[in-house]
Amino acid sequence: MILTIAGSELRRMFYSPLAWAILAVVLFILGLIFLILVDNYLNVLQPQLVGAPGAPGVTDIVLAPVLFWAGVMMLSVTPLLTMRTFSEERSQGSLTLLTSAPLSITEIVLGKYLALLLFTLVLLGLLTLMPVSLVAGTTLDWGKIAAGFLGLFLLLASFSAAGLFISCQTRTPLIAAVATFGLLLFLVVLYMSGSAQGTASELFIYLSHFGHFLSFLQGLFDSSDVVYYLLFSAAFLILTIRQLDNERLQR
């Protein structure tokens, strides 16, 4: 059942031009960044690094920043993807279709979440073309790349869960988008305030999702980071389920 919902959701996502526009814009901009970084590496950095022991390779200089920028871009783009999930269904009245079918709320929420994850995988799949295009000219540290992509996937999964929850709070997709963006940005600000001199706080750094992402980009696979993202996503999914359940009971 979850798969049925996810399949239909994903298909509907691609019926609207929004998903295509998002993919096009994100890939175009990341492609440009990739190009600039490769160019910079070839013309400026490579000659300086030749022969230096322990010098960073292409993976560190080109791919890690691309993945970082992908995360930053998705900070503002994920809200556009998630805004419709519940708020639009609610304003159209089509949520009733799901709630009167023999489904549990959990199945509905997980179905929609899975659709968002599948979309994320499509995006990441297209992004992997960038490192693959470098294979012709150089050797890459695939372990590091895999860690980076896993980190990006987990980051986007947490964005989606938060977006899903906020979309469930309102009937207006735009408000959902703005609120989700606000929440995600707030977590980044937490990271900045946590790492600022004088006010540095381990707690703030732990709470913000970007801090965990950065260690993935360095190729570090720390299970505590994975756990953070899983907890973050699960918490928002559970909140969404509770919220929808409450709606049936109250108001």
């Binding site: 159209q92 279709l97 009167s100």
Partner: peptide, 13 residues
């Protein structure tokens, strides 16, 4: 089988 006041349709399907 339930038809609510507003039919629960997906306009893009």
């Amino acid at each position: 089988g339930y038809l609510p006041e507003r039919p629960p349709l997906y306009p893009d399907m």
